[in-house]
């Protein structure tokens, strides 16, 4: 938990530093906030690791298999990175780039979930074929 308090303090400190530096050098303020976002993201990942282990254990216990959980986790990873990058773009005053990044994230998640839709359609066909 020590890491949480350190990260929260660092983020708050960065807000002040970005305000101080960004007044003269706006680009430097943006770079500073990006660096802290990357470092805070690293801390987030370190806390999420045990959660992921638990999810894999649950998948084993439930006997899901078939790579379903893997696809879902990939989608979550892409969504997290996309959201962070979009917020940075918006803060830097490039809303259109952020929107395009969001679109890219959505497209990649759709692309990743093709096997899920495919297996769902196969299942539907099997069920309807039996009737």
């Amino acid at each position: 938990m020590e890491l949480y308090w350190k990260t929260a303090a660092a983020v708050l400190l960065t807000v002040i530093l970005v305000l101080a530096v960004g007044r003269q050098e706006k680009d430097m303020g943006t770079v500073l906030s990006m660096a802290v976002c990357a470092m805070a993201g690293t801390v987030v990942i370190s806390y999420l690791e045990p959660v992921m282990d638990l999810l894999w254990k649950l998948e084993d216990m439930g006997g899901l298999g078939g790579g379903m959980l893997g696809i879902l986790l990939k989608a979550v990873g892409i969504a997290l990175v996309t959201q962070m990058a979009r917020k940075i773009c918006t803060d830097a005053g490039n809303g259109s780039l952020g929107a395009m990044l969001e679109l890219l994230g959505s497209a990649v998640i759709l692309y990743l979930s093709i096997p899920l839709f495919d297996s769902f359609l196969t299942l539907l066909r099997e069920i309807l074929g039996e009737i």
Binding site: L17, V21, E25, L32, A35
Partner: peptide, 23 residues
């Protein structure tokens, strides 16, 4: 896993120095 606070200060310091030089 550690939070490298040094990097934040480094970037802020570079920003302030560049800002002063710029002025």
């Amino acid at each position: 896993m550690t939070m490298e606070i040094d990097l934040i200060f480094k970037i802020a310091a570079i920003g302030i120095i560049v800002s002063i030089l710029n002025q």
